[in-house]
Nucleic acid binder design. Sequence first.
DNA 1: GAAAAACATTTTATGTTTAAAATATTCACA
DNA 2: TGTGAATATTTTAAACATAAAATGTTTTTC
Lengths: 164, 164
Amino acid sequence: MDSASDQAGLDHESRLEHGDHQAVRLWLRLLTCTNLVERHLRNRLRKEFDITLPRFDFMAQLAREPKGLTMGDLSQRMMVSGGNVSGIAVQLEGEGLISREPVPGNRRAFCVTLTRAGQKRFAEMAEAHEAWVTECLGNLSGTETEQMMAVLKHIKHDVSRIEP
Amino acid sequence: MDSASDQAGLDHESRLEHGDHQAVRLWLRLLTCTNLVERHLRNRLRKEFDITLPRFDFMAQLAREPKGLTMGDLSQRMMVSGGNVSGIAVQLEGEGLISREPVPGNRRAFCVTLTRAGQKRFAEMAEAHEAWVTECLGNLSGTETEQMMAVLKHIKHDVSRIEP
DNA sequence: GAAAAACATTTTATGTTTAAAATATTCACA
DNA sequence: TGTGAATATTTTAAACATAAAATGTTTTTC
């Protein structure tokens, strides 16, 4: 279906009433924007490579750590639960894209790495992925990009001070 | 579990290698940031009001359209699939927070509105929600907020020109 | 050195989300 | 007016996500 995105101007921001605070306005625009890009990437990955975003993400984490990562590492970096990572790993292993081997000095943990096939497959996808992201965010000026990076850093800092 | 988020510095951005393009870097930071805020709001809504973010979103859309919306309207505005909206509606209707009535001249569509109980319930939640968002995004300077709003608008415009 | 605590992962149960198919209604138009 | 396209919604199946419990391993502590 996916007809939800192809009508511009009716989105999360339409939730606003007059007098709503600036922070809420900003949040809804941020959410809309991120969802828009995320959906686009998700659709492309599915169409061109028949893979989901979480699986791509999983492989991306491994691609930059040739020595491998444990399941817990992956859970942290992907910011999802351990059970979730476990499920994705089973699938990717079944497709021969990753391998899980015991860690010498620690029988609890696994060391997860991309197989040769996984490396090859990921390299192809990463190239396309980067092009798609550039299509979405590459038209900003240098100033805009820098501003955005700075403000996001600020937000990240503020939010991480809030928890629980 | 939810231990995935409480370790700062290891997140989507850790996916980066040297030489990756600026657009990818920006995208990963944008994604991380939005996920961080979204997770925070989701947890709070669950803890304080025992409601999920999608259900809150659903009610928020209705709150600003007292005349009601169709299922398709809701799908568009929430940017989720029709089936998703359908499932949420069944639940909220079961809890007596919304009502669905036939549209006079169109037997296909429903007109969905908040019930009196739904309005009351939403008003309470909305106040808390706004406070939480302000906690996350309210510490930015006026300039930062304006820059962010402008750049996001730019991105939204660029992305909506891409689709297939 | 045994008990307790912490750790790493998987399993289970439940819920969310999506795409696609199915159902039903309305519209266009020849 | 009847046929096909478009519209509005629900259902279905599969993937994703979480919290909590279960399993097995390592470390701490007394």
